[in-house]
Every structure is written in C-alpha cells, then in structure tokens.
C-alpha cells in the first residue's frame, strides 16, 4: 500500500507538471483527490491494515495529499500569472505621448516679491499696515514735512483730484496715519506695501502706477546703525548672503539724516560691469532717521523717541532680482511673462 501511495504521488506530480491549462488541472484534482479519485480508492483499503501500520500509512497518505494539493496550487498560480502577463502585454501604450495637462495658475511676480519682503520683516517682528490710495494733501505731504510750496514737492509729480485730494505719491502717508493712530505712546514696527501713482510717462523705467514698500521703526534709542543693520539683513535675504551694502547721504524731507542704500552688484561681484554702470554698486532704496518734525506732528516726543524709516520700489527689486528689463512688463500682463514666474 505504501508503494501504491508513492506511485500515485509521483504520477500526479508528473501530470501536474505537464498540465497546460487550468481545465487540465481541474480534471487532475478530481482524478487524484476527488471522492472517486485514486488516492481515496487506495485509502479505502486501510481497514485491512494492521493496527501498527494504520497510523504510518495514514500519515503517508496525508503527506501525499498535501504534496499533490501544493503542486496543483502552484501550477494554477503559475498558469494564471502567465495568462495575466500575456494580457498586460497586449495593453502596452505609448508612454511618450503627452499626459493630460494640469493648469496651475499663479501669483503675479510683484505679489511674490511683496509677500517675500513682507514675510522677511514679519519674521523680524513687523506688522503690515495699509492705507488709502486716494489721499489728502495733509497726509501725503504736510504730515511728512512737505508744506505747500516746499521745493521738494517737485521731486514727485502728483496726480491731483482736487486741491486737497490726490493719488498718493508714496506709501509714507500710511506711516503718518499709523503714528497718529498710536498717539505717540507706544513703539512702532511696521511695513506698509501698496500702490502709488506719479505723473510719469510710461517707458522702460517709469510707470505712472507702481508699488512701494516702506518700513518704520519708532522706539526709544533707535539709531542709524540699527537702520544699517536692518537693511543689511534685508539685502542679504533678498539678493544673497554674499551681498554687501553701503549707505550714501541723500535727501528726503521726512528723514534727517537721509540715506540711500546700494547693494554690491551680484553680476560682477562689485568689480564693475554694465549692469552697475561700472560702479560695482546698485542703488536699491532710500531711508533715514525719522525727521523730528514728522514725529512731533504725529504726537511723538522727539526728545524721547527716535526712529528710522526706509522705502523701496517693488518693481525695482523685482527687476534687479530677476533681471526683468522693462517695467511695463508688470502691467502689460502678457501671459508669456506672467507664466515665467508662477509660484502658486
């Protein structure tokens, strides 16, 4: 009986090995393991065996059943996998064809620049203030130490609406409004971004509408060195950590002393090239110590408080940072320009 079982096993394993489809495997399962299968038939003769032989043959029979079942399962899986492989082969596509386009829009380059500057100063503890674009003469000029008939008013050609109303020529009135709102009794750390307007004919470097961002810090004991240090942080963050800055004296009616800040040219690394007009330096922004009259006019005691202010054109920063060669690109909104900078 032992021999019979072994014969069934080797016959079955050989047959499974040769099977070519699942149909044949199914038939073999019936033939060897089914109720009328050869293994069952052999086991029917178990009763004739001695008490000692019965467990031995029983175990052998179970092993044979397991071995055939395992072979059948393995072969089934193998055949199914082969069938799947064949099917997948037929499903091959041309992966070089383009995928479905996903349209992502994006922010305007100037928005990206503005948010970058805002975030930089927010990180240093500044709040972001805004104000009206149609301003009064009082806040746009007089509160900034530019009384009527002051010659420095010529520095900015103004779009007037009435004698008292105008399109703001600078974001500085927001500084005046903030100082006034705080009534001279608390320190200030703020930036104010926004649109400004001047009577300029639009060309490659001028725009009748542009955007500024200004900063103001007022506290006891604010120094000119604080302004220099702050601008150095700004310049290195915006233009790269290897940039150097320098301050030059300048004139703005609302600051005294007034300075302009240059950043070392990144194209030539300060050696002198056509971008920096051979000077090695590029003018970036203006600033200075808040004029005591400006502090006093907004209720700050200039013997107790001092402050610094600075302001820049966002377009200029963007043009220098990204090499944009014509300010009109920002306002023409050609999709081929906008899509170069889409940072969603």
């Amino acid at each position: 009986m032992k021999e019979e079982l072994q014969a069934i096993e080797s016959e079955a394993l050989a047959a499974v090995e040769k099977a070519e489809d699942s149909q044949a495997l199914q038939e073999m399962k019936v033939k060897y393991l089914g109720k009328k299968g050869s293994l069952t038939t052999v086991l029917r003769g178990m009763g004739k065996l001695s008490k000692e032989e019965r467990p031995i043959i029983g175990e052998l029979a179970n092993n044979v059943r397991a071995s055939i079942t395992e072979a059948l399962d393995a072969k089934t899986e193998k055949l199914e996998r082969a069938a799947l492989d064949k099917q997948l082969e037929t499903e091959t596509i041309d992966v070089t064809l383009p995928g479905n386009p996903v349209h992502v829009g994006g922010r305007h380059l100037l928005t990206s620049i503005m948010e970058e500057i805002e975030d930089l100063f927010i990180g240093m503890g500044y709040e972001v203030k805004e104000g009206p674009e149609v301003e009064t003469d009082y806040y746009n000029f007089e509160k900034l130490n530019l009384p009527k008939n002051h010659p420095a008013r010529d520095m900015q050609d103004t779009f007037f609406i009435t004698n008292e109303l105008l399109l703001r020529t600078q974001t500085s009135p927001v500084q005046a409004r903030t100082m006034e709102a705080y009534q001279g009794n608390r320190p200030i750390k703020m930036i104010c971004p926004g649109k400004v307007y001047r009577r300029d004919t639009d060309d490659a470097t001028h725009s009748h509408q542009f955007r500024q961002i200004e900063g103001l810090v007022v506290d006891k004991n604010i120094t000119l060195s604080d302004l220099k240090g702050t601008l150095d942080v700004f310049a290195k963050k915006m233009f790269g950590k290897d940039r150097k800055i320098r301050l030059r004296p300048s004139f703005f009616p609302f600051t005294e002393p007034s300075v302009e800040m240059d950043v070392s040219c990144k194209v030539c690394n300060g050696e002198g090239c056509s971008v920096c007009k051979q000077t090695g330096w590029i003018e970036i922004l203006g600033g200075g110590m808040v004029h005591p009259r400006v502090l006093e006019m907004s209720g700050y005691d200039s013997t107790v408080y001092s402050g610094f202010a600075f302001g820049m054109g966002q377009e200029r920063i963007a043009m220098l940072k990204y090499g944009v060669n014509d300010i009109r690109h920002f306002y023409t909104n050609d999709v081929r320009f906008l899509s170069q900078y889409h940072q969603a």
Partner: peptide, 16 residues
C-alpha cells in the same frame, strides 16, 4: 557712513 556699525533694534518686541 562706512564707519557705522551694523545693529538691530533692541528693546521693545512684538509678534509680527
């Protein structure tokens, strides 16, 4: 101006 040191405002602080 080149002789000015680089400092950051000390003292009052707010969460920006």
């Amino acid at each position: 101006y080149d002789h000015l040191p680089y400092t950051i405002p000390q003292g009052w602080v707010q969460a920006g």
